[in-house]
Structure formats: C-alpha cells, structure tokens
Write a protein that binds this DNA or RNA. Structure first.
Lengths: 311, 311
DNA sequence: CGCATCATTTTGTCCTGGACAATGTGTTAT
DNA sequence: ATAACACATTGTCCAGGACAAAATGATGCG
C-alpha cells in the first residue's frame, strides 16, 4: 500500500514525484515518448528509478523552469545539462552597483549557511539604511543574485530557504514595529493569486507601503479570485494589490487581473506588480502595473492627491 | 495544458486534489466503487466537482484522518459527518475551556474581517500570557476553531488568510525580539517536506523552541528531502524537526521520515510533529514524534540531560 | 477472559495506452 | 516589423484492470 524507500536500489514513482516535482503522469508520458527516464521494474512490474536518472530529472526540471522544453533536453547527458544551467545564469548583475561588495559578502553568508551572521548583517544594514532603501537596494537585488547562483548550483536549496526565512523575519519585525495601530489611507489589501507561492515579494511590497502611512492588510499568498473580490468589498479597501513572481505564467496573470478588474467595485483601484509582469505593460487598462518597487511611494502620493487626502 | 480555476462552477480533479489532499487516483476509484463523489463533466468529458461535494470530501478526509474508513462515511450526509467530527474531536474545544470566551470573540473578529482589532487583541494576550502559553492556549486552538468554522462555511477563505497573516506577523515579531544572537544548544533545523505548505505550524514550533534558549533555524516550508540531509550535515545541527499539517498524507510523511532518518547522520536526532502525525505514533523507530506542542520544552530538557548540557 | 493466528474484506496506489487542448514555433501575408 | 495562420510539442485527463498493505473479523489456545 505504501512504498517504503528502504531498497536503496531506486525510488518509486511516488518518491520521484516528491523529489523532482514532476507529476506521475508526466514521468510516464516522458518514458513512453522519449524513452527517458527508463526505470527498472520490481517484482510487481512497478517502476524503480535509479538515483542517476532522478538526478538528471532534477536538472531537466530546472532547465524547464527556465523556459527550455523537454524534447531538447532529454537526450543530453548530465554534464551538458549542468553546463547549460551555468550559462543560463547569464547576467553578472551586480559587481558594478554601489552595494555590490556588500551583496557579495551577504551571498557568501547565505552560501555557507551562516544564519546568525546573515541576520546580524541584514539587521545592521536595515538600521543604517531605513526600511525602504533596504528593500530596494539589498533585499530585492540579493533575491535576484541568489536565484542566479542557485541556477548555477553555486548555492543550494536550503541556503535559499535560509535567506528567505531570515529576510521574512527581519521584514516582518520591521513592519510590525511601524504598523501598530496604523489607520491611514489608502487602505490596501495585499495578496497573490492561487497558484502563486512567493510570499517574500508580498512582504517587500508591504515593507514599501507601510512606512508611507498606508493601512496595509495582507492576506498572504494564494487567495482565490472571487474571495479577493468579496474581501475587497467587505473591508472597504481603497486599493487591491497583487504580486507575481517571475515563475508565474504571464497569460494567467493577465486573464486573472482582467477578470478581477471586472468584478471589483470601480471605486477600488487595482495595482499589480512583480517580476511576472515585466513585459505586460499596457495590456491592462484600468490596472496600475508596477515594474519595480521604487514606484510605490510615488503611486501612493498620486492616489492621495487624486482622493484629496493629506498623509 | 494546465487548469485555470477561473470557472467558478466547480473544480477540476487537480484542484480537488490540492484542496482535499486526496490523490486523483483515489478520487476516481471512490467514484467507481462507491458512486461518490459524482462530479459533473465538462465539454471534454473531464470531471467538474461542485463545491458541496468538495466540502463533503473534506469532512470525510478529516474523519479518515481520525481512523474512520471511507465505506462507512461515504453515504452519510454532511450534517451527520459534521456531528461525527464534533463528537470525535472529543474536547468540546471552546465553551468549557478556560479561554473559551476569549477564543469566541477572536473568532468573531476573524469572521468580520477586523485586522486591526484582531491584531491588537492577540498582541495584548501575548503580552499578558507569554509566548509559549499564548501559542498553546490561543493560537493553536484558534487555528482548529477557524478550520472547523471554515468547513461549516461560517468564515470564508480571506478571513482565514487574514488570521494566518496576523498571527505570523505577531509570532515572528515575538521570536525576532527574543532570538537576537541566540547561540544555545541544541541547534535545531526546522522545516517541512516539499508538498507541505503550512508555514504557521512551523512558526508555532519555532515559538515554542526559541524561549527555551535553543538555536533555532527555520528553512521555511517545502525543502526537498536530500537538501534537508545536506543542510543538517553542513550546519552541525543537533536536531532536525519536521512539521506536518493535518492535510499531509500520512503515508508520505511516514515514507519520507523513514528515508530521512536513514540518510541523516545517526548523531542528529529527528523530531516530527503536527496534526498530520496524530495516528502515526510508534511506527517510526529512531524518530521522536510529538502529538502536541506542550511536549516540546520537556523534550528539549531531555535532550540536554542526555547530552550533558546545562541551559 | 486476554491474546495470538489466520482468512477475508477493504482500500490506496500503480499500470497501460488513448485522447485532447493549451502552449510554443515556424511560415507566410500584410 | 507585425499579424495571422498552420503545425509540433507537451502536460493532464480518462477508463478500467490489477495487486499488496492494512483493517476487520473469526477462531483456537493458554
């Protein structure tokens, strides 16, 4: 009934699904179409995946997340796949920027799993810079750097998680301190669509909004569309803000935003942003699209001017 | 290719799998054998589950988690199922308990979407009670209450999200204040398995551990198994702690924990807990299973005694 | 009466192979 | 260069059969 993974010879299809994130159906259909993976079979005729094949599947999955397609990848050997991942990392990003060196040293702390030093370092920068510049110049670029480094295999998953958790802790603390009894306008409802899991992006937005004196309420990630509507109407919010990570399918974002705009009371503004909307600039009438965090404070002032409200 | 959840008429089989934790195969085989669920079909012949059936599936799943078996449940109507849950839950939860009235009033704040009042109320209780009792007597029971209320349709999804977010903020702030430069022993690595998304459970554990003076590092949710191993080894942790929500398939939890135990250095203890493991007491040799949050401080002392370390 | 052993039912997961729509890619016409 | 179209790729769904693990019930024994 269940599949004990004890026979170290290989993994069951359920275990591979768990480890690679590829659905059982997908694993079977790849085998049928491409001849890979080619698992052995146990006495019952059930698939038994050797570890090397699972490793290769993991590499392929990463490349697919980057936009590659399975047919081009499936016949390559692991070395070639690894090389592709490294190249794809691409942009040397920061070295030039003002905080470049700082970012590099933080990245090293992440890579070497130093939670305390990382937190102390971040905390210190936050104190020195203030919340908004900290988010714009440190947290956001570091997210990008770590994402690239992860693609290249330079940092591993736990390191990335570690960073995310430490930053979440720090941002929440900073927001918590500032927002006690905030009751300003605009009142902003903040969340993501159901398939979107990137909580950190949401938190960065909240960190940009709170110091502006807005009344910012986050529902966290993955709120169903119609629930966003009902919550917005029930809570008398001025603005609904939705965040999309780069992994979010652009098509879904656009469809969802249009449908949301249609169902939302016209008096409620709809703001959307995040790496997932980079290219979707003007296709969204009636919706304010942000391509970077910097624009948020100005947009708040804009709203206040239009509404005739002084901060 | 993928299934956008936009048509509000009903849910796809994949969406129901997500919402109920019942595998697609299980949903199909129940339909074949018992005649329930009996989803409609769309133009392509694909299953479309009405909301009421999904609600009933959720009830059934909860009862199965309690040890019941599907055949006895599947023909009962939702009211009967709800009654069974209430009886089986044993503890009449609120009315009798010391904090019953308090919980009820907080539940009302959640239901009516009052983020500020909710936060103030929680914050006040935290100050008064201290972190650990606050988690045990307020946060955890309120989670259960809200879960039940949500099943009954008494609170909606945004309300639940609102509660989760407010509590996350408060707990993180409390933990952040206490944990600056904590370097005690045991050093605990905290995370969940890849399919598990319940961040709040993790945070409650962290809130129980931090005041004990442990060095508690959270990787957040959804860390792949082998990454947990490598992180545990690299970071010189004493304990790896994994949390499971009630929605997590018990079999997956057991498989995963066994495999984790086998691959972890023997000197590293493995702790597991959460509603998802209620029934899985003794099947896990070499793993410490927690059925409630209360046991955590004692277990930490236990560990220190065994290791010959004074707090 | 408690407890171990065995037979029977229940139940979840895996299998095969077919189908199809959403998405991506390449080509041609404006 | 952009738009419109045809063609290829790809993930998810479906049906219905099979089987072993777990739960349940029956039986015998100390």
């Amino acid at each position: 009934m269940n599949t004990p993974d004890i026979p170290m010879a290989g993994l069951s299809i359920a275990a591979v699904e768990r480890d690679t994130g590829l659905a059982k159906d997908t694993l079977r259909v790849w085998e049928r179409r491409y001849g890979f993976p080619a698992p052995a079979r146990d006495g019952r005729g059930e698939r038994v995946y050797p570890a090397e094949q699972v490793d290769k599947l993991r590499l392929i999955r990463r490349l697919i997340d980057q936009g590659m397609r399975p047919a081009r990848l499936i016949d390559l050997d692991p070395d070639a796949l690894t090389r592709m991942l490294e190249e794809l990392g691409g942009a040397p990003a920061s070295a030039a920027s003002e905080h470049g060196a700082r970012l590099e040293s933080l990245l090293e702390l992440v890579r070497l799993h130093q939670p305390e030093a990382l937190r102390d370092g971040l905390q210190q920068l936050l104190m020195k810079m203030g919340l908004q510049p900290f988010v714009i110049d440190i947290v956001a670029p570091l997210c990008t750097r770590i994402g690239e480094a992860w693609l290249r295999g330079y940092v591993d998953v736990p390191a990335e998680h570690l960073y995310t958790e430490q930053v979440k802790g720090i941002l929440r603390t900073a927001i918590g301190v500032r927002s006690t009894a905030a009751r300003g306008r605009p009142a902003v409802l903040l969340t993501t669509f159901p398939e979107e899991q990137h909580a950190l992006g949401l938190l960065m937005v909240e960190a940009m909004l709170t110091p502006e004196g807005t009344c910012c309420v986050s529902l966290g990630v993955q709120t169903p569309l119609d629930d966003i509507c009902s919550a917005a109407a029930a809570g008398h919010y001025d603005i609904v803000a939705v965040s999309f990570s780069s992994a979010y399918p652009l098509r879904h974002a656009i469809d969802g935003l249009r449908s949301l705009r249609a169902n939302l009371p016209p008096t409620v503004e709809l703001w959307a942003g995040g790496a997932g909307l980079r290219t979707a600039g003007r296709k969204l009438p009636g919706i304010q699209v942000f391509t970077s965090l910097e624009g948020i404070p100005a947009a708040v002032n804009e709203w206040r001017k239009a509404a005739g409200i002084q901060p």
